[in-house]
């Protein structure tokens, strides 16, 4: 951005205001988690955390198998993420760069599948999972999510412009098989977009609730199912629930801050050409 002046202070001011707005709900849930739910009635809530967070967190671990849930969620979201990134890049590569009969029609079909309302698929899908003997086990939440239409769409959009045809032709001239071209040319070129797709998929999978609720056993839960259990009883102890959500958000937040640079770069690179 040479030639443009350094940002003025009001730019920082506006951005800071926006970020305060972004952070506030996180902070607020931490506040409730560190106090008791009584603070929710106060007209002017206290601004500093109280001392109850660890006590509330300990209650979370007493109430639900939180470690197991965390482990399950990492396995599920991790597997789903890796597989989605690989398979979507593969399909996206084919749609973007390879010529084959029915390409446009098939691609239109991929987009159309985005419009299938997921809520109603639950019963037929459950019947299928039960037939396969997967109900109650992690594959039931992993297998249906191994690849996603939005991912195929996203990778195709990126690769159309980001991967020059000359590179592919050169590799082909070199005698590379298609799979090698994919592995050595397309995959490396799609890294930025894949980083974003990875994060997107991970978050979707991490936050999925309805399907795991139906298909998994409650004592073998994912994090979201464990959080739901915290709302048991006729009354809801918000301190407990929000302590749980805070605990569940921390790992994500850590990963997010550590990988933030790549993720941001991924979005930036992936979106250049709609």
């Amino acid at each position: 951005m040479t030639g443009l002046r350094r940002a003025r202070f009001w730019v920082y001011g506006l951005l800071a205001a926006f970020i305060i707005g972004s952070v506030f709900p996180f902070y607020w849930s931490f506040l409730v988690a560190s106090r008791d739910s009584g603070m929710m009635t106060q007209k002017v809530p206290p601004l500093l955390p109280g001392g109850n967070f660890f006590a509330n967190a300990a209650r979370v671990f007493d109430t639900v198998p939180f470690w197991r849930a965390l482990g399950n969620s990492v396995i599920v979201s991790g597997t789903v993420t890796i597989s989605t990134v690989l398979l979507c890049t593969l399909a996206g590569f084919a749609f973007a760069k390879l010529r084959f009969r029915g390409r446009n029609g098939l691609f239109l079909f991929v987009i159309a599948t985005l419009a299938v309302p997921t809520q109603l698929g639950i019963i037929p899908l459950y019947i299928a999972m039960a037939d396969f003997g997967w109900a109650g086990h992690l594959p039931a939440v992993i297998i249906p999510n191994l690849v996603s239409a939005i991912g195929v769409f996203w990778m195709r959009q990126y690769l159309v412009s980001a991967l020059p045809d000359e590179l592919i032709e050169a590799a082909r001239m070199d005698g590379c098989s298609m799979l090698r071209v994919f592995w050595h040319v397309a995959l490396p070129a799609s890294r930025p977009a894949a980083a974003f797709l990875g994060m997107f998929t991970f978050m979707m999978s991490w936050n999925d609730f309805l399907w795991p609720l139906v298909v998994l056993d409650p004592e073998n839960p994912t994090v979201q199912l464990a959080l739901e259990r915290l709302q048991s009883g006729y009354y809801v102890d918000y301190s407990l629930v929000l302590a749980g959500t805070t605990l569940a958000t921390i790992p994500i937040l850590v990963v997010f801050v550590l990988l933030g640079r790549q993720i941001v770069a991924g979005i930036m690179a992936g979106a250049v050409k709609g």
Partner: peptide
Amino acid sequence: ITQHKTGEGGPYHQNLFTKLAAGHG
């Protein structure tokens, strides 16, 4: 015996009816 505990009654009963409909689980 294994106990399956769900937190809220709403999701619990929905799950119950889904599995009654599916015939398994």
